[in-house]
């Protein structure tokens, strides 16, 4: 967002005072650190099997226990953070960019709008997770196909939000001022409609981030996520499912990680929404 230093300072101070933003930021910061420093934090190779150590309950050497192949669950969860955050980030970015583009386009060109929004309605009629299952099944079990599928599933929501915001903006007089000066449709979209939709877009993107993490876990659990033995949180849970009675720890810890990540992103998004909305609030 384009902000001058004073506005930025004021915004940051407000965010720093917002309790749920602080908690969310703390959780997400820890996860990001875990992802970045994974090789230092995890004592073991997340993929290497050591059959001798299978089904060890949580203990000093294996804080989260081990799974049926003797792999350290802690190391796998820590490495899984990388994948989950990457999928969340990439999905949030891709659906944010395309959603913003389509949203602004349909606000600017009303004829295009009728067509596009019907397509979006059709996509939204299918539950996002079902759509993602279908798409990943078609694209194959890779990380990239999960990202593409989830992005497609979340674009309609983002497009709707940006469109709504741009429809409000385009009725304001500065749009007419630009048109009197001869501004092209492209200029109005990029310079006027898009910057004024950044607040809601940012908030929506944090929620997409959280949904994507959750959806990745669901896809992996159903067997259409990144293929095993890739350590993703969903994969770990999926592989632990058959042994949940004798080794509850295999499913519990990645489950906690998913809950934490989703909770953290949601709290972060709530805080951003409270501080950024109403979007055009005049601060004097």
């Amino acid at each position: 967002m384009q902000l001058n230093p004073r506005q930025r300072y004021r915004l940051l101070r407000k965010l720093a005072r917002h309790r749920s933003f602080r908690i969310g930021f703390f959780i997400v910061a820890i996860l990001v650190l875990a992802a970045v420093l994974a090789p230092l934090i995890a004592q073991y190779d997340p993929i290497a099997m050591r059959i001798r150590f299978r089904f060890r309950p949580p203990q000093a050497a294996f804080p989260f226990g081990t799974d049926q192949f003797g792999r350290d669950v802690f190391s796998r969860v820590v490495y899984g953070t990388r994948l989950s955050l990457w999928i969340g980030l990439a999905t949030a970015l891709a659906s944010g960019v395309f959603g913003a583009f389509l949203g602004v386009l349909s606000a600017q060109y009303r004829r295009f709008d009728a067509l596009l929004m019907r397509v979006m309605d059709a996509l939204m009629a299918v539950p996002a997770i079902l759509l993602a299952i279908g798409l990943t099944a078609a694209l194959g079990p890779h990380t990239s196909s999960v990202i593409i599928a989830l992005s497609v599933a979340y674009i309609p929501r983002t497009a709707r939000i940006v469109r709504g915001s741009a429809l409000v903006t385009r009725e304001l007089e500065f749009i007419e001022a630009a048109r009197v000066a001869g501004a092209s449709g492209l200029r109005i979209m990029l310079k006027h409609l898009l910057p004024n939709a950044m607040g809601p877009l940012l908030v929506q993107s944090t929620f997409v981030f959280a949904y994507a993490i959750l959806a990745e876990a669901a896809l992996s659990f159903l067997g259409v996520g990144p293929s095993p033995p890739t350590p993703s949180w969903g994969n770990i849970i999926s592989e632990g499912r058959d042994h949940s009675v004798q080794a509850w720890w295999i499913m519990l810890f990645p489950g906690i990680a998913i809950s934490l990540a989703t909770l953290g992103m949601n709290l972060l998004g709530d805080g951003l929404r409270d501080v950024l909305d109403p979007r055009l609030k005049v601060e004097t």
Partner: peptide, 10 residues
């Protein structure tokens, strides 16, 4: 005078 200037533009 409030609506005629883009709040996101310097």
């Amino acid at each position: 005078p409030y609506g005629s200037l883009n709040p996101r533009m310097r």
